[in-house]
Amino acid sequence: MDDKNFHQNLYRYLDGEMSPEEKNEFEAAMKDNPLSQSQLENEQRFDQVIRRHMIQEEAPYELRERIIDRLQHRSPFERLRETAWFAPLASGLITAFIAVIFFAVLAHTPREFTAFAQGIDTHIEHLHGTYQAEFLTDDIDAAVHWFDEKLDFAVIRPHIAPDKAKLIGARIIQINGRKAAYFMYDVQGHPLSAFVMDMNGEPLERIRDRMLRENDNARIYARNMKGFQAVLCYHRGNDTGCMLVTDMTQDELLPLMG
Protein backbone atom coordinates (compact mmCIF):
# COMPACT_ATOMS: atom_id res chain seq x y z
CA MET A 1 0.00 0.00 0.00
CA ASP A 2 1.59 3.32 -1.00
CA ASP A 3 1.77 6.34 1.30
CA LYS A 4 -1.13 8.30 -0.18
CA ASN A 5 -3.43 5.30 -0.21
CA PHE A 6 -2.41 4.39 3.33
CA HIS A 7 -3.31 7.84 4.72
CA GLN A 8 -6.63 7.95 2.90
CA ASN A 9 -7.50 4.50 4.17
CA LEU A 10 -6.25 5.37 7.64
CA TYR A 11 -8.82 8.13 8.01
CA ARG A 12 -11.60 6.09 6.48
CA TYR A 13 -10.76 3.35 8.96
CA LEU A 14 -10.69 5.72 11.93
CA ASP A 15 -13.90 7.43 10.82
CA GLY A 16 -15.76 4.12 10.50
CA GLU A 17 -16.34 4.56 6.77
CA MET A 18 -15.00 1.19 5.63
CA SER A 19 -17.06 -1.84 4.76
CA PRO A 20 -16.39 -4.98 6.87
CA GLU A 21 -14.31 -6.49 4.03
CA GLU A 22 -12.22 -3.33 3.61
CA LYS A 23 -11.72 -3.15 7.38
CA ASN A 24 -10.42 -6.73 7.54
CA GLU A 25 -8.08 -6.08 4.64
CA PHE A 26 -6.73 -2.93 6.26
CA GLU A 27 -6.20 -4.57 9.64
CA ALA A 28 -4.39 -7.47 8.00
CA ALA A 29 -2.06 -5.04 6.20
CA MET A 30 -1.40 -3.19 9.47
CA LYS A 31 -0.57 -6.33 11.41
CA ASP A 32 2.75 -6.86 9.69
CA ASN A 33 3.81 -3.24 9.76
CA PRO A 34 4.80 -1.93 13.21
CA LEU A 35 5.53 1.60 11.86
CA SER A 36 2.04 1.90 10.43
CA GLN A 37 0.57 0.52 13.63
CA SER A 38 2.32 3.17 15.66
CA GLN A 39 1.03 5.85 13.30
CA LEU A 40 -2.46 4.45 13.63
CA GLU A 41 -2.27 4.57 17.42
CA ASN A 42 -1.12 8.21 17.37
CA GLU A 43 -3.92 9.14 15.00
CA GLN A 44 -6.44 7.35 17.21
CA ARG A 45 -5.28 9.30 20.25
CA PHE A 46 -5.38 12.58 18.35
CA ASP A 47 -8.85 11.75 17.14
CA GLN A 48 -9.99 11.12 20.70
CA VAL A 49 -8.53 14.44 21.83
CA ILE A 50 -10.55 16.21 19.16
CA ARG A 51 -13.68 14.32 20.23
CA ARG A 52 -13.13 15.19 23.87
CA HIS A 53 -12.77 18.87 23.07
CA MET A 54 -15.52 19.13 20.50
CA ILE A 55 -18.34 18.27 22.83
CA GLN A 56 -21.89 19.31 22.24
CA GLU A 57 -23.01 22.24 24.37
CA GLU A 58 -26.62 22.56 25.43
CA ALA A 59 -28.56 25.27 23.66
CA PRO A 60 -29.51 28.00 26.15
CA TYR A 61 -32.94 27.57 27.73
CA GLU A 62 -33.86 31.14 26.79
CA LEU A 63 -33.23 30.37 23.11
CA ARG A 64 -35.68 27.47 23.20
CA GLU A 65 -38.29 29.61 24.96
CA ARG A 66 -37.83 32.44 22.48
CA ILE A 67 -38.29 30.16 19.49
CA ILE A 68 -41.41 28.51 20.90
CA ASP A 69 -42.83 31.91 21.69
CA ARG A 70 -42.16 33.14 18.15
CA LEU A 71 -43.76 30.07 16.65
CA GLN A 72 -46.85 30.67 18.82
CA HIS A 73 -47.09 34.36 18.00
CA ARG A 74 -46.25 34.56 14.32
CA SER A 75 -47.21 37.86 12.69
CA PRO A 76 -50.19 37.94 10.27
CA PHE A 77 -47.75 38.36 7.41
CA GLU A 78 -45.75 35.30 8.51
CA ARG A 79 -48.98 33.27 8.65
CA LEU A 80 -49.96 34.53 5.22
CA ARG A 81 -46.55 33.59 3.81
CA GLU A 82 -47.04 30.00 4.95
CA THR A 83 -50.20 29.49 2.89
CA ALA A 84 -49.94 27.48 -0.33
CA TRP A 85 -51.27 30.25 -2.54
CA PHE A 86 -49.04 33.07 -1.23
CA ALA A 87 -46.03 32.38 -3.45
CA PRO A 88 -47.96 32.07 -6.76
CA LEU A 89 -50.07 35.12 -5.88
CA ALA A 90 -47.03 37.21 -4.96
CA SER A 91 -45.24 36.17 -8.17
CA GLY A 92 -48.34 37.03 -10.21
CA LEU A 93 -48.69 40.45 -8.61
CA ILE A 94 -45.02 41.26 -9.12
CA THR A 95 -45.21 40.17 -12.77
CA ALA A 96 -48.35 42.26 -13.32
CA PHE A 97 -46.70 45.28 -11.69
CA ILE A 98 -43.62 44.98 -13.90
CA ALA A 99 -45.83 44.64 -16.99
CA VAL A 100 -47.78 47.79 -16.08
CA ILE A 101 -44.59 49.78 -15.58
CA PHE A 102 -43.14 48.44 -18.83
CA PHE A 103 -46.15 49.38 -20.94
CA ALA A 104 -46.50 52.76 -19.25
CA VAL A 105 -42.88 53.54 -20.11
CA LEU A 106 -43.39 52.22 -23.61
CA ALA A 107 -46.45 54.43 -24.10
CA HIS A 108 -44.49 57.51 -23.12
CA THR A 109 -41.33 56.68 -25.00
CA PRO A 110 -41.14 58.83 -28.13
CA ARG A 111 -41.41 56.78 -31.34
CA GLU A 112 -38.63 56.76 -33.86
CA PHE A 113 -39.33 58.28 -37.30
CA THR A 114 -38.89 55.28 -39.57
CA ALA A 115 -40.54 56.50 -42.79
CA PHE A 116 -37.21 57.42 -44.41
CA ALA A 117 -35.77 53.94 -43.90
CA GLN A 118 -38.99 52.23 -44.98
CA GLY A 119 -39.35 54.39 -48.07
CA ILE A 120 -35.78 53.71 -49.16
CA ASP A 121 -36.16 49.96 -48.55
CA THR A 122 -39.39 49.93 -50.58
CA HIS A 123 -37.67 51.78 -53.44
CA ILE A 124 -34.84 49.20 -53.39
CA GLU A 125 -37.40 46.36 -53.49
CA HIS A 126 -39.09 48.08 -56.44
CA LEU A 127 -35.74 48.19 -58.25
CA HIS A 128 -35.43 44.44 -57.61
CA GLY A 129 -38.87 43.92 -59.13
CA THR A 130 -40.71 43.08 -55.93
CA TYR A 131 -43.25 45.88 -56.28
CA GLN A 132 -45.03 46.25 -59.58
CA ALA A 133 -47.55 48.98 -60.41
CA GLU A 134 -51.16 47.96 -59.73
CA PHE A 135 -52.47 50.75 -61.95
CA LEU A 136 -50.47 51.54 -65.06
CA THR A 137 -50.89 55.13 -66.25
CA ASP A 138 -48.92 58.22 -67.18
CA ASP A 139 -51.83 60.49 -66.19
CA ILE A 140 -51.23 61.84 -62.69
CA ASP A 141 -54.85 62.89 -62.16
CA ALA A 142 -56.07 59.43 -63.11
CA ALA A 143 -53.53 57.95 -60.70
CA VAL A 144 -54.63 60.26 -57.86
CA HIS A 145 -58.26 59.47 -58.62
CA TRP A 146 -57.48 55.73 -58.55
CA PHE A 147 -56.71 56.04 -54.81
CA ASP A 148 -60.19 57.44 -54.03
CA GLU A 149 -61.97 55.20 -51.52
CA LYS A 150 -58.91 53.00 -51.28
CA LEU A 151 -57.14 55.13 -48.66
CA ASP A 152 -58.60 56.91 -45.64
CA PHE A 153 -56.90 60.27 -46.32
CA ALA A 154 -56.92 62.69 -49.26
CA VAL A 155 -54.09 61.80 -51.64
CA ILE A 156 -52.34 64.84 -53.15
CA ARG A 157 -50.25 65.03 -56.28
CA PRO A 158 -46.57 64.28 -55.64
CA HIS A 159 -44.30 67.33 -55.81
CA ILE A 160 -42.72 66.62 -59.13
CA ALA A 161 -42.76 68.86 -62.18
CA PRO A 162 -44.75 66.78 -64.71
CA ASP A 163 -42.53 67.83 -67.58
CA LYS A 164 -39.43 66.56 -65.85
CA ALA A 165 -40.56 63.13 -64.73
CA LYS A 166 -42.51 60.35 -66.45
CA LEU A 167 -45.22 58.62 -64.40
CA ILE A 168 -45.29 54.84 -64.93
CA GLY A 169 -47.97 53.70 -62.51
CA ALA A 170 -49.23 53.55 -58.96
CA ARG A 171 -50.02 51.08 -56.18
CA ILE A 172 -50.81 50.98 -52.47
CA ILE A 173 -47.95 50.33 -50.06
CA GLN A 174 -47.49 50.20 -46.26
CA ILE A 175 -45.33 52.84 -44.59
CA ASN A 176 -45.15 53.02 -40.80
CA GLY A 177 -47.87 50.42 -40.56
CA ARG A 178 -50.29 52.59 -42.54
CA LYS A 179 -51.43 52.49 -46.15
CA ALA A 180 -49.76 55.05 -48.40
CA ALA A 181 -50.05 56.00 -52.08
CA TYR A 182 -47.04 54.90 -54.12
CA PHE A 183 -46.33 56.59 -57.47
CA MET A 184 -43.57 55.17 -59.68
CA TYR A 185 -41.64 57.54 -61.93
CA ASP A 186 -38.75 57.54 -64.33
CA VAL A 187 -36.56 60.66 -64.45
CA GLN A 188 -34.29 60.40 -67.48
CA GLY A 189 -33.35 56.86 -66.67
CA HIS A 190 -33.39 57.30 -62.89
CA PRO A 191 -36.20 55.38 -61.17
CA LEU A 192 -37.96 57.57 -58.60
CA SER A 193 -40.49 56.54 -55.99
CA ALA A 194 -42.97 59.04 -54.59
CA PHE A 195 -44.92 58.17 -51.45
CA VAL A 196 -47.90 60.21 -50.33
CA MET A 197 -48.69 59.49 -46.68
CA ASP A 198 -50.94 60.50 -43.82
CA MET A 199 -48.52 62.15 -41.34
CA ASN A 200 -50.96 62.38 -38.44
CA GLY A 201 -49.14 61.40 -35.24
CA GLU A 202 -45.75 60.96 -36.87
CA PRO A 203 -42.88 62.09 -34.62
CA LEU A 204 -41.49 64.79 -36.88
CA GLU A 205 -39.71 66.34 -33.90
CA ARG A 206 -37.37 63.36 -34.05
CA ILE A 207 -36.05 64.49 -37.46
CA ARG A 208 -35.84 68.18 -36.68
CA ASP A 209 -32.11 68.04 -37.35
CA ARG A 210 -32.82 66.88 -40.91
CA MET A 211 -34.98 69.85 -41.86
CA LEU A 212 -33.73 71.71 -44.93
CA ARG A 213 -36.36 74.39 -45.28
CA GLU A 214 -39.53 75.67 -43.66
CA ASN A 215 -42.31 78.12 -44.49
CA ASP A 216 -45.83 78.76 -43.28
CA ASN A 217 -47.28 75.88 -45.25
CA ALA A 218 -44.63 73.21 -45.35
CA ARG A 219 -41.34 71.82 -44.17
CA ILE A 220 -38.77 69.88 -46.16
CA TYR A 221 -36.60 67.18 -44.60
CA ALA A 222 -33.87 65.12 -46.26
CA ARG A 223 -32.05 61.87 -45.49
CA ASN A 224 -29.39 59.89 -47.30
CA MET A 225 -29.21 56.14 -46.67
CA LYS A 226 -27.84 53.12 -48.49
CA GLY A 227 -26.79 55.29 -51.43
CA PHE A 228 -30.28 56.74 -51.97
CA GLN A 229 -31.65 60.20 -51.35
CA ALA A 230 -34.99 60.67 -49.62
CA VAL A 231 -36.67 64.09 -49.44
CA LEU A 232 -39.87 64.59 -47.48
CA CYS A 233 -42.21 67.51 -47.95
CA TYR A 234 -44.65 67.85 -45.04
CA HIS A 235 -47.87 69.86 -45.44
CA ARG A 236 -49.07 71.36 -42.19
CA GLY A 237 -52.51 72.21 -43.54
CA ASN A 238 -53.71 68.69 -44.26
CA ASP A 239 -51.09 66.75 -42.28
CA THR A 240 -49.87 64.84 -45.31
CA GLY A 241 -46.39 64.17 -46.52
CA CYS A 242 -44.85 63.46 -49.88
CA MET A 243 -41.54 61.60 -49.82
CA LEU A 244 -39.39 61.19 -52.93
CA VAL A 245 -36.73 58.50 -53.08
CA THR A 246 -34.15 58.19 -55.84
CA ASP A 247 -30.48 57.60 -56.52
CA MET A 248 -30.09 61.22 -57.70
CA THR A 249 -28.29 63.70 -55.49
CA GLN A 250 -30.13 66.30 -53.43
CA ASP A 251 -28.94 69.02 -55.76
CA GLU A 252 -30.47 67.12 -58.70
CA LEU A 253 -33.69 66.24 -56.91
CA LEU A 254 -34.70 69.50 -55.27
CA PRO A 255 -35.15 71.42 -58.53
CA LEU A 256 -37.57 68.67 -59.70
CA MET A 257 -39.81 69.47 -56.77
CA GLY A 258 -40.38 73.06 -57.86
Binding site: Q56, E57, E58, A59, L63, I67, I68, L71
Partner: peptide, 14 residues
Protein backbone atom coordinates in the same frame (compact mmCIF):
# COMPACT_ATOMS: atom_id res chain seq x y z
CA UNK B 1 -42.46 20.63 13.91
CA UNK B 2 -41.75 21.95 17.41
CA UNK B 3 -41.06 18.45 18.74
CA UNK B 4 -38.58 17.67 16.00
CA UNK B 5 -37.01 21.10 16.24
CA UNK B 6 -36.45 20.95 20.00
CA UNK B 7 -34.78 17.55 19.60
CA UNK B 8 -32.25 19.19 17.26
CA UNK B 9 -31.80 22.44 19.17
CA UNK B 10 -28.40 21.51 20.65
CA UNK B 11 -27.01 20.50 17.26
CA UNK B 12 -28.35 23.70 15.71
CA UNK B 13 -26.86 25.82 18.45
CA UNK B 14 -23.47 24.10 18.23
Amino acid sequence: YEEQLMACMDSMYN
